[in-house]
């Protein structure tokens, strides 16, 4: 039941582009290469309720009379634009930005988020390591389905915006090995001059997020996600598109170093 735009990477796998196009769901051919993804049809809502109580309920409520707590109410989460739960005011800037950029909680996006929240939203406030087990994620989502409209038809990620999307994703799929590359921070400093036209090295963020002092893995993952069009922002996609693995690692190393310097 997954759509075909998967690339089997550790980065967020699916992301609807803007504008979302409604294309007939691609049903078959999908499961290959998506071994780590939850199966939309395989969730057990009863087990999901137990898992929800264990992992999620400290911060999130669902059901009748649910209130926003540390995290937002999860009623109607499916197909909701990220960062838009009614009355919830504690979103991270990153979550709000991703929502504005077009992140919608489809089954696939929520799956990626639950696997490791930081893969999708780098500086989310959701303090949760993630669930590696795809079955557990499927179970929780099956439970959450009960509290969303139209629960028999959970929106999957908009299938590829153009027909070549899946092919493109396979072509440029991220090998987790790129995160092991040791970046040359001096090279990164030169490359960073392209970033600092907009992103301020001192870490101030006003309209444009800070990228200083991030863990290198987060930084590299974010850039690869833009490069592979998993994140929607058009400027960042353009910038990331021409960055190679070494260059991304170099930038990650430099901005990490910059953060350490400014903390002193």
């Amino acid at each position: 039941m997954r759509s075909s735009n998967t690339c089997g990477s550790s980065v967020g796998r699916i992301y609807p582009d803007l504008p979302r196009l409604v294309v007939a769901t691609v049903a078959a051919a999908a499961l290959s290469g998506a071994a780590a993804a939850a199966d939309i049809g395989a969730g057990d809502p009863e087990r999901g309720a137990e898992l929800f109580a264990r992992h999620c309920a400290k911060c999130h409520e669902v059901g009748k009379d649910a209130r926003n707590r540390a995290g937002p109410v999860l009623n109607g989460v499916f197909d909701r634009q990220a960062g838009t739960a009614e009355g919830f005011t504690n979103y991270s800037k990153d979550m709000l930005r991703q929502g504005r950029d077009g992140l919608v909680w489809s089954f696939d996006n929520l799956d990626v988020y639950l696997e490791n929240p930081k893969n999708l939203v780098s500086r989310t406030r959701m303090n949760f390591r993630g669930l590696e087990d795809p079955q557990a994620r499927a179970d929780i989502m099956a439970f959450l389905r009960r509290f969303s409209d139209n629960p028999r038809d959970i929106p999957e990620a908009a299938p590829s915006v153009n027909v070549d999307y899946a092919a493109l994703a396979r072509e440029i799929g991220v090998d987790p090995g790129v995160l092991e590359i040791e970046g040359d921070a001096d090279y990164g400093e030169y490359l960073a001059s392209e970033c600092t036209t907009c992103h301020r090295p001192d870490g101030e963020d006003d309209g444009i997020p800070s990228i200083t002092g991030w863990p290198e893995e987060d930084f590299a993952l974010a850039l690869h996600a833009y490069k592979n069009e998993k994140r929607p922002h058009p400027v960042m996609r353009m910038i990331a598109r021409r960055l190679g693995e070494e260059e991304i690692a170099a930038l990650a190393a430099y901005f990490r170093r910059l953060g350490e310097q400014s903390e002193r």
């Binding site: 600092t196 992103h199 301020r200 006003d206 309209g207 444009i208």
Partner: peptide, 11 residues
């Protein structure tokens, strides 16, 4: 974002 850019480039 344009305001963020302005702050960034003038810095």
């Amino acid at each position: 974002e344009s305001f963020g850019w302005y702050a960034g480039i003038t810095k």
